[in-house]
Design a protein around this nucleic acid. Structure first.
Lengths: 157, 157
DNA sequence: GAAGATTGAATATTCAATCTTA
DNA sequence: TAAGATTGAATATTCAATCTTC
């Protein structure tokens, strides 16, 4: 019988450290982004993420399910998030005639305007946190590696 | 006057891509961890994070403020999270005689036991998402780079 | 019956205000 | 007066149940 307490589950070291760094960096940068937006009198980061996702989507529209997946939140959560943006006049719902179950979120001009207003604040924060801190090659390498991690996590349910 | 709409804020490319990858990888892996814990009938990831943070702290205890900072959540949020763990008998509060304003969260034996129960599930998920997907050198490089990002984000308030 | 989305209940998180001690 | 922590109100998020359409 081993005396060392619970079963050992080491999580080989360089990987645990990498994961912790992802968690900490994500939380730190996200927190700074939130704070910068709040101080600038702008809406929360979740709104920005939704607006920018729609802005880069074909036709500036996306089905609710796809949007939820892109933002990595639950379907129910997205419905209510979109509710708030609709009430704010930034986004509209659209029902497609082809499949009348599906509904779309569509970016409105006012949403584009707000996005343009928020962008400098977000960009400045990301610039401060990333540019100059990572080299181009490091940034590229991190993106490539973490994209693989995401795919690996998603595939294996 | 520039006619190109809002001020351009490009966020130079390799960095934006890296940040998106951090967000996506974090969300994907966190989601898988949550799901794996739920399916195993275990408490949520936030509990694991708190327990493991206490377990690796000197004396298995930490002041509330330090713990909140380590977990990157608000002070009020931590108070209520600890409330739940105390009610579950996993953690205890302790008041230090030196500075009677401060309170400590202390890991109890039951908390260590639960931690040992949760660890294999978490380890298996991290293993599946990271090990074999990243090389040792990549993991090391990601950790090093993102640690710098975190410090850069935190410092500049 | 299954897929897509919405709703309501339960839960978790933050923000501002408060309380206690230094 | 400030630091540390807690509380209550407001907000946001998830989960399960429901509704509509395929």
């Amino acid at each position: 019988m081993k005396a060392s307490g619970a079963a050992e589950t080491p999580i080989k070291e360089p990987f645990l450290g990498a994961w912790k760094a992802v968690v900490q960096a994500h939380a730190a940068v996200t927190g700074q982004l939130q704070e910068a937006l709040t101080e600038a009198g702008l809406p929360p980061l979740a709104w920005y993420e939704l607006l920018v996702t729609l802005a880069t989507a074909p036709e500036r529209r996306l089905r609710m399910g796809e949007l939820a997946e892109a933002l990595v939140i639950s379907r129910g959560g997205l419905t209510k998030l979109v509710d708030r943006l609709v009430k704010a006049g930034l986004v509209d719902r659209d029902f497609c005639a082809e499949d009348r179950r599906a509904s779309y979120a569509v970016l409105l001009p006012a949403g584009e305007e707000l996005l343009a207003e928020m962008r400098p604040t977000v960009a400045a924060e990301l610039d401060r946190s990333l540019v100059g801190v990572l080299s181009d090659r490091e940034a590229e390498s991190i993106r490539e590696g973490l994209d693989r991690v995401r795919n690996s996590a998603c595939s294996g349910g």
